[in-house]
Design a protein around this nucleic acid. Structure first.
Length: 413
RNA sequence: GCGUCAGUGGCAGAGUGGUCAAUUGCAUCAGACUGUAAAUCUGACGGAUUUAUCCUACGCAGGUUCAAAUCCUGCCUGGCGCACCA
């Protein structure tokens, strides 16, 4: 199966700027670039779609340039409803370092060149920008761009700064074309306008056709919402922000409607194999074979095999047959390092411990949880809001559970 | 700069002196049912609490009043209109 077909069937392709995709990626080996703005200090699960696509491209012999928008990140691209707060320069610089490190790890098995658009944008003079870049854009055209058009209609308006964003990204493409003969740019579908802006700039300045490909924004089919939130929080690739355990849980909890799409997008499992899993799952959906495969595969890609093994052991304890008391000392220390863990005093109130461990956000909430029977101590439900830890049966460790999926290991110190 | 309209909880959006911790919807969380799924139903949804109350909050800062999200003044932010011929 050729690459364009593979990517299409896996669901990576939304739009592309050519008659057919084959012409872009199946023929000559090209230099492909993708850019990300350092608007946070870590990429999220959603970013992985493009990152996976880059891996597929790299596996097929294309050269990859990974651009980190040290310059564009200072501006922020126009969001459809609100103007962005300008980010502090120091924060942006810090984010650049972190994202770069993360991407380097993610692509460690591929040859990827990293660039920062600060290199060429930082010292460009305003006059040069207006003459070399601005002159090739008409306002008439810019105001038709989706993000800009909606903002012009909205109550918040649109600053000149953000209005200029497409020009900056366009210039990036031009630079990479001139410098490194880059002829393909990929991004999320929301980036289409910005990417095409570069395609046009290159055509106008160099009379050469370069290409654009976008991937669809992954949407949760069951909710219609943007994918990648867990309990209202973003799922990050950084394990300090989203622990491997939480990361694994996120994928394990994917609903049936989505899981096969995700297997195609976020893992390298072959399409045939996915089909097999799909059939197996139809016979016995309760086994959640597909989710397990997905969680294991994605977590391996992001955090590595070793982490996955640890996470799976923790799961055995939290959800599996293993009773807590049967854990060996060694296993407890594994849980301690990888799952939510809270040290506590023996005389502490249960409500306080719930708050400290993050299982409840306030005492009031903690009480409601207890009253509704959502709290278990080492497997035993408790409805006593005044309970102290010392009154519950436990050894040095106890295992606190709120709801079905939130837990924390409590160590008495 | 002038005029005018607006700024409310995660979001949308009511409320125009006390009955407002603020209607409603979405989102979120818990319970029941399940498969750590979805859908559905039930409940919670600023914080603390001795559950009587207290504190913090309706752009910011003051003021009027027994009492303000609601009235007044100033400021900040944004939308729209005007700002050359007139």
């Amino acid at each position: 199966m050729n690459l364009s077909k593979e990517l299409t069937e896996r669901g990576f392709i939304n739009q592309f700027s050519s008659e057919n995709l084959e012409d872009i990626i199946d023929g000559e080996k090209r230099t492909v670039y993708h850019g990300i703005d350092p608007s946070a200090d870590s990429a999220q699960a959603g970013n992985m779609v493009i990152w996976m696509m880059l891996k597929h491209l790299a596996n097929n012999g294309h050269k990859i340039i990974f651009l980190i928008g040290g310059a564009t990140g200072m501006i922020g691209d126009p969001k459809p409803n609100t103007e962005r707060e300008l980010k502090d320069k120091v924060v942006v610089e810090d984010n650049v370092v972190k994202i770069k490190k993360q991407a380097e790890d993610f692509f460690s098995d591929h040859e990827v060149e990293f660039v920062n658009n600060l290199e060429w944008l930082e010292n460009m003079s305003l006059l040069e920008f207006l003459r070399e870049v601005g002159k090739h854009y008409t306002i008439n055209e810019l105001v038709k761009k989706d993000a800009i058009a909606t903002r012009l209609q909205s109550d918040t308006g649109l600053s000149y700064t953000e209005f200029a964003y497409p020009l900056l990204q366009g210039y990036d493409y031009y630079q990479l074309f001139k410098d490194k003969n880059c002829t393909v740019q990929i991004g999320g579908s929301d980036q289409w306008g910005n990417i095409v802006s570069g395609v046009e700039l290159v055509r106008r300045k160099e009379q050469t056709e370069v290409f654009a490909i976008t991937a669809p924004l992954v949407v949760d089919k069951t909710t219609g919402k943007k994918f990648g939130k867990s309990e209202g929080n973003s799922v990050w690739l950084d394990k300090e922000k989203t622990s491997p355990y939480e990361f694994y849980q996120f994928w394990l909890n994917v609903s049936d409607e989505n899981v096969f799409d995700y297997l195609k997008l976020f893992t390298f499992i072959s399409l045939d194999e996915v089909k097999k899993i799909e059939e197996k799952t139809k016979d016995n959906p309760g086994a959640r074979e597909a989710q397990k495969t997905l969680a294991q595969a994605v977590t391996t890609i992001v955090h590595g095999e070793e982490e996955v093994e640890k996470v799976m052991r923790i799961n055995e304890v939290f959800f599996g047959k293993l009773s807590f008391s049967s854990l060996t000392q060694d296993e407890i220390s594994v849980v301690k390092k990888n799952a939510p863990y809270t040290p506590s005093q023996n005389e502490a109130q249960l409500v306080d411990v719930l708050v400290e461990s993050g299982l409840a956000s306030s005492k009031r909430e903690a009480k409601t949880f207890i009253e509704t029977g959502a709290v278990q101590i080492s497997g035993n439900k408790t409805i006593d809001t005044n309970l102290k830890l010392s009154e519950a049966e436990h050894g040095k460790y106890l295992f606190l559970k709120r709801g079905k999926k939130k837990m924390s290991l409590i160590e008495i110190i």
